[in-house]
């Protein structure tokens, strides 16, 4: 998890994101990596640099083969938790990025892709 944070930080610095945006992105990565680890039983994290008409962005993709999420809407509610956290991991990290995309099906795992534009 620490290595995911460091990798995301390095990329965000490389792409000259502002300090606040760097921090937001790294924090979101930290939240999502923890979810993958705790709820998904481990998985993969992927980083992508994006370019769209002069805009630069970073996309983070977290994938796991865990139990999946039964009720995505509920999982995205502030304060809802199945673990022992504050229930802010998913809902909070959604507020830290520009685009948030979640695909999940019970029993097959979860994929969360978030994008932050510069």
């Amino acid at each position: 998890m620490v290595s995911v944070r460091q990798a995301v930080r390095a990329w965000a610095v490389e792409m000259k994101f502002s300090l606040v945006d760097q921090t937001k992105l790294v924090t979101a990565a930290s939240e999502l990596a923890r979810n993958t680890l705790i709820h998904g039983g481990g998985g993969s994290a992927r980083l992508e640099a994006l370019e769209d008409g002069g805009r630069q962005g970073i996309r983070l993709i977290f994938e796991d083969q865990g139990p999946g999420i039964e009720d995505v809407k509920l999982a995205l509610t502030d304060g809802y938790t199945t673990g022992h956290g504050l229930g802010l991991g998913l809902s909070g990290s959604r507020r830290l990025v520009n685009e948030f995309e979640i695909t999940t099906s019970p029993g097959e795992g979860t994929r969360v892709a978030v994008t932050k534009w510069k």
């Binding site: 606040v20 937001k24 939240e31 504050l86 909070g92 507020r95 830290l96």
Partner: peptide, 14 residues
């Protein structure tokens, strides 16, 4: 607490 950290924490809902 650094400003960037504080802003992020508030945005996170904490």
């Amino acid at each position: 607490m650094q400003p960037a950290v504080a802003i992020t924490l508030v945005e996170l809902g904490l």
